[in-house]
């Protein structure tokens, strides 16, 4: 589904990604872990098409197309979804109104008829249950005055509404208490299908207790320096990131 080869990206003069290689197949869950500043969020942003980042080298192939050629909206219509680490507050635009536009833009791209008001509401009601989100919250301005937990739940709710093929969760666990974390994780798990894939970007292992990854990758200094299974995440939880840093330093010295 996704094949990232030698991806390099920078912001301004500063190079952040220094050659990422990663392959994700349908049905898989990949976790990307790493210390702060390692480039995790940059990778998520580059995949979603954020323009501040300049891709200086490498390729990203997504279902046979060159993802980097596409605008952010074209990526979304092709099924890429980014759950933001810091969802943006947008006064004056209700979640409902905005999602109706988004859902119908994506349907139009697929050659489907737009949903009418009733169909849209039915879909919304069904997906609201997944993340236990309140209708009143959705008629308010998008994320405005929402608590951290409400914002993250709204991200997963949007994900449910747009049913992406490739979901990238950027630090979805940050700022959540354990109950909110569980609700968000359950929502993500219920959306898992054999034909879609999920990339979970996280600093801590705890989210991975709920969203079980097939693969775990450690990102450090803009490169994936170690890959493994869930066991690797447990090891990181136990030992922290320093031993990885030392390993990398030793390898470079050697």
């Amino acid at each position: 589904m996704l094949k990232i080869s030698n991806l390099q990206a920078s912001i301004g003069e500063k190079q952040i990604l220094r050659g990422i290689n990663l392959e994700v197949r349908a049905g898989e869950v990949h976790a990307i872990m790493g210390p702060n500043g390692s480039g995790k969020s940059t990778l998520a942003s580059v995949l979603a098409g954020r323009q501040e980042y300049e891709v200086t080298d490498g390729t990203v192939e997504y279902n046979g197309i060159d993802l980097l050629e596409l605008s952010p909206e074209a990526r979304a219509r092709e099924g890429v979804f980014l759950a933001f680490q810091y969802p943006i507050e947008i006064p004056g635009v209700s979640t409902t109104n905005f999602l109706k536009t988004a859902v119908n833009e994506i349907r139009k791209h697929k050659g489907l008829e737009p949903l009418d008001a009733v169909q849209f509401l039915t879909l919304m009601k069904e997906k609201m249950k997944l993340v236990n989100i309140d209708q009143a919250l959705l008629s308010r301005s998008l994320n405005e005055g929402f608590s951290g937990g409400e914002k993250k739940r709204n991200e997963v709710f949007q994900m449910a509404m747009l049913s992406p093929k490739l979901a990238i969760l950027d630090e979805t666990d940050s700022g959540l208490d354990i109950d909110a974390l569980r609700i968000v994780a359950e929502g993500v798990n219920q959306l898992k299908r054999p034909d879609n894939a999920t990339i979970v970007v996280t600093h801590y292992q705890r989210l991975l207790d709920y969203i079980i990854p097939d693969y775990v990758h450690v990102l450090y200094n803009g490169r994936i320096v170690k890959s493994g299974t869930k066991a690797l995440a447990m090891e990181l939880e136990e030992k922290g990131y320093d031993w990885i840093k030392n390993e990398v330093a030793d390898a470079q010295a050697g």
Binding site: A48, Q51, I90, F98, A102, L162
Partner: peptide, 23 residues
Amino acid sequence: DALFYLRSRGIDADAAKSLLTVA
């Protein structure tokens, strides 16, 4: 940031600008 957020959900740049300015 708001513009990117809307676009990342499949709304094209012009429609996103229009949504934000109308808001």
